[in-house]
């Protein structure tokens, strides 16, 4: 194809002509990604590597000041594993993650199905249901903490009025309910995002498939199980992995409501690592816990990326 204008001669020379030919052209894409790559290496890759290395050193505030940390091999991991708080936190993390993921996905799917229809006023409901997702997480957590107040909290009052409990209960102060009370807040906060992802997926399900299913006499539930769910399964899996990652990393909810207490009853691995690091200032132990969490998350992330690639291949 012949260019319509003659190149070079008719053009005003600008500084950016350097990138048109030769080395300039070759370097151009690299120069464009360079700032991002440099920053990411500086603020993600390097800290990550040094964080993992810290797990094998004895790093405390004292050794930080003197600048000589001692290599201790796996001793940080041994100390962590021997700590009863770690066992408790692991159990709590499993409960916390399973409850959050299962309930958020179930509710998110139900809400997405509910909102995926043309009805008068549906926009109003959709906006309202997205509110928890939009409210800043610190604000949301503090509001829930206030609602759980043991003496004048509205949650207690509503539950009493509904006849579900007889007396006001200190939900966050009781070792048997603290973790679950925080879970309720986290479900409230996280479900709208799941709903959003699944709603987007539902809108991509071709109408013709649903109509064909109706013609064949499939009832609502069968249509959901045999037609809709297989169509959105990849989005559903993506939502599951994302929820998993967000839940494992949900620090604000637990920290601002209970700080992991009372008596470690709502401690998860994340808050435990934080306590090791910034209450006890034993950065080696904190890094050991964080590294274990990291391995779990890398596995989840790998699954996530595989799913995305599968979807792009579709």
């Amino acid at each position: 194809m012949t260019p319509r204008t003659l190149p070079g001669r008719t053009l005003r020379n600008t500084w950016s002509s350097v990138f048109e030919t030769g080395w300039g052209a070759h370097a151009y894409p690299y120069l464009m990604v360079l700032p991002a790559v440099v920053v990411v290496i500086g603020v993600v890759v390097y800290p990550l590597a040094s964080g993992i290395i810290t797990a094998f050193y004895d790093v405390t505030l004292r050794t930080l000041n003197s600048g000589s940390a001692e290599f201790v091999g796996l001793r940080n991991f041994e100390r962590v594993l021997a700590d009863p708080a770690f066992v408790q936190a692991s159990v709590n993390t499993v409960i916390w993650v399973v409850l959050n993921v299962v309930v958020q996905l179930a509710l998110g799917l139900a809400l997405a199905l509910l909102l995926h229809r043309a009805m008068p006023g549906i926009g109003f409901f959709r906006s309202g249901i997205l509110v928890p997702w939009v409210v800043p997480s610190v604000v949301a957590v503090l509001t829930w903490r206030w609602m759980y107040d043991p003496s004048v909290g509205i949650a207690n009052e509503l539950l009493v009025r509904l006849g579900l409990i007889d007396n006001y209960h200190p939900w966050l102060g009781d070792t048997s309910t603290a973790l679950y009370a925080v879970t309720v807040e986290s479900i409230w906060k996280g479900t709208p995002f799941v709903m959003l992802l699944l709603l987007a997926a539902l809108q991509l399900v071709p109408r013709s498939i649903l109509e064909a299913a109706s013609m064949d006499g499939a009832s609502g539930w069968r249509k959901l199980w045999y037609v809709i769910l297989p169509q959105i399964r990849v989005s559903f899996a993506i939502a599951a992995v994302l929820t998993f990652i967000l839940t494992v990393n949900n620090f604000n909810a637990i920290w601002l409501m209970t700080e992991g207490g009372p008596l470690n009853s709502s401690e998860i691995l994340f808050t435990l690592a934080y306590k090791y690091g910034f209450k006890r200032f034993d950065l080696g132990m904190a890094s050991a816990v964080a590294t274990m969490l990291f391995v779990g998350l890398v596995i989840a992330t790998t699954v996530y990326l595989k799913l995305i690639q599968a979807r792009e291949g579709d």
Binding site: V44, Y46, P47, L48, S50, G51, I52, T54, V59, L64, I245, V248, N249, F251, F270, A273, Y274, G277, F278, L283, A286, S287, V289, A290, T291, L293, F294, L297, V298, A300, T301, Y304
Partner: peptide, 13 residues
């Protein structure tokens, strides 16, 4: 996807 808690410590240092 990296857990913030793992970055927290090296950042602090």
């Amino acid at each position: 996807m990296f857990p913030p808690v793992l970055l927290l410590i090296p950042f602090y240092v």
